[in-house]
C-alpha cells in the first residue's frame, strides 16, 4: 500500500501540476466561485461595500481581503460544527459565528493596521450583514467538509477581492489621478463623481456588461 502511494507520488510529476490541479473538486469550486459565480459582477451581491469602500484601489483590496478572511474562517467553522447545530437554529448559529469572525478581523485591523481600519470605516463591521458570507455558510458549508468549504469561501473571497480592486483601480485613477497612492497623472482634474458612490454604480454596470459580453453563459442577478 505504502509502495503504491510511493509509486503514485513518484510518477505524479509526469502529469504537470497545471493539468492535474484543474481536475480536483476543490479547484473546480475555486474557479467557479472566482469567475462563473463572481459575487460582484455575476451575482450582484454585497453591493454596499462595493459602492462604499472602493474609491481607492488599496481600500477595495483591503475590504476584499478582510471579507475573504472572515468568509473562509466562518465557512470552515460552520462546516466543522454542521453535525452539531440543529437545523432549526442554524441561521442564528451561523450569524453568531460570522459576527464572531468579523469582529476578530475588525479588532485586529484596528490594533495593527490603524490607517487601513480608519479608511474602511464602518464597512468592516458591516461584513457581518454581507449576504454572500451567510450565503456560503447556508448553501455550501452546511453540507460539506471544512476543507472544501474553506476552498469554496476562498474562491468567493478572491472573486470579491478581485472585483473590488478592479473597481478601486479605475475609481482612483479617474478620481485622484493616482494608483495605490502613487501619483500617475500630474495636474489631473479629479472626477468627483468617481470618488462618490455614484461613480461606483456607473462602473459596476459597465463591468457587469463587460463580463456578460465576454462570458455570456450563466445568469446575472441575485440579492442586495
Amino acid at each position: 500500500m505504502a509502495e503504491a502511494i510511493q509509486i503514485q507520488k513518484a510518477s505524479a510529476p509526469a502529469i504537470p501540476l497545471t493539468q492535474r490541479l484543474p481536475q480536483t473538486k476543490g479547484w473546480k469550486e475555486l474557479v467557479r466561485d472566482i469567475w462563473d459565480d463572481n459575487p460582484t459582477f455575476r451575482m450582484i451581491l454585497a453591493m454596499c461595500p462595493t459602492m462604499g469602500a472602493t474609491n481607492m484601489a488599496i481600500n477595495g483590496m483591503a475590504q476584499g481581503l478582510a471579507t475573504l478572511i472572515a468568509t473562509v474562517a466562518s465557512s470552515a467553522t460552520v462546516a466543522a460544527l454542521r453535525t452539531i447545530i440543529p437545523a432549526e437554529v442554524r441561521l442564528p448559529a451561523y450569524m453568531i459565528i460570522i459576527a464572531f469572525w468579523v469582529t476578530i478581523v475588525d479588532i485586529f485591523l484596528r490594533a495593527y493596521l490603524p490607517p487601513l481600519s480608519a479608511a474602511l470605516g464602518p464597512y468592516v463591521p458591516l461584513i457581518i450583514t454581507n449576504c454572500f458570507v451567510l450565503g456560503r455558510a447556508e448553501a455550501f458549508a452546511s453540507q460539506n467538509s471544512p476543507g472544501l468549504s474553506a476552498l469554496d469561501a476562498l474562491g468567493v473571497g478572491l472573486g470579491f477581492t478581485m472585483s473590488l480592486t478592479l473597481l478601486g483601480i479605475v475609481r482612483e485613477l479617474l478620481g485622484f489621478g493616482s494608483l495605490f497612492g502613487i501619483q500617475i497623472f500630474s495636474g489631473w482634474t479629479p472626477w468627483v463623481i468617481m470618488i462618490i458612490p455614484a461613480g461606483a454604480f456607473l462602473l459596476v454596470g459597465l463591468y457587469v456588461g463587460i463580463v456578460k459580453h465576454f462570458s455570456p453563459g450563466g445568469q446575472i442577478g441575485g440579492g442586495a
Binding site: 460544527l81 447545530i85 442564528p92 448559529a93 453568531i96 459576527a99 464572531f100 476578530i104 479588532i107
Partner: peptide, 14 residues
C-alpha cells in the same frame, strides 16, 4: 444548549 454554547464560546473568545 448548542446555541447558548456557541454564543458563550464566541463571546468569551471575543
Amino acid at each position: 444548549i448548542v446555541l447558548t454554547a456557541i454564543a458563550a464560546i464566541a463571546g468569551g473568545l471575543l
